[in-house]
């Protein structure tokens, strides 16, 4: 029943969203945004041992205008924050942000005057990766999880609805300090 049965062999059916997501995740181009220790691990991930080229991502784009993923690798200082935002604004849509390491995720051990306490104060973050610094394997794992997220990103009006729904959920969520129980 339906269209599938009448198709000749060799033709595959999917949704536009599925194809777009597949293309996007399979040609993910990260912008170089190395800041501190994590940047070295990020470079290692692109190096021969861990070989990010296996996932088509070894080309770190020097220009943000050619990139769709910003890996914020390291501590973001108050002085760097406006620069970071500017780079983010220069990236074309659709774009994703991966906060690599605890400093980028939450400020980490540098809870002081100089460091922005989490890059999510400046740009929306799609994936948080803990570790100080995270191992290359952890970065690859985070990138693969982000691939999964990209694959399932909706398009057009569905995307707008999704954003709406996500925001409503976030607004209704209980703040961490009011949660009960073990932290997990």
């Amino acid at each position: 029943m339906g269209l599938e049965e009448k198709l000749p062999s060799g033709v595959l059916l999917t949704t536009v969203e599925g194809v777009a997501g597949y293309m996007r995740k399979a040609s993910f181009w990260p912008a170089t945004f190395g800041l501190a220790c994590c940047a070295i691990e990020m470079m290692t991930t692109g190096g021969p041992k861990y070989d990010l080229a296996r996932f088509g991502m070894e080309v770190f784009r020097a220009s943000p205008r050619q990139a769709d993923l910003m890996i914020v690798a390291g501590r973001v200082s108050q002085k760097m924050a406006p620069v970071l935002r500017q780079i983010y604004d220069q990236m074309p849509e659709p774009k994703w942000v991966l906060a690599m390491g605890v400093c980028a995720s939450s400020g980490g051990m540098f809870n002081n005057y100089a460091v922005v306490q989490g890059v999510d104060h400046i740009v929306p973050v799609d994936m948080y990766l803990p570790g100080c610094p995270p191992r290359p394997e952890m970065l690859i794992d985070a990138i693969l999880k982000l691939h999964d997220q990209v694959q399932h990103t909706k398009l057009g009006v569905n995307r707008l609805d999704e954003i709406e729904a996500d925001e409503a959920t976030a607004l209704a969520a209980v703040p961490t300090s009011q949660m009960k129980g073990l932290l997990r």
């Binding site: 809870n111 002081n112 932290l183």
Partner: peptide, 13 residues
């Protein structure tokens, strides 16, 4: 000059 840190929130603390 204070250290300038912010309180860290945990579940219930």
């Amino acid at each position: 000059y204070p250290l300038g840190g912010i309180p860290v929130e945990y579940k219930g603390a």
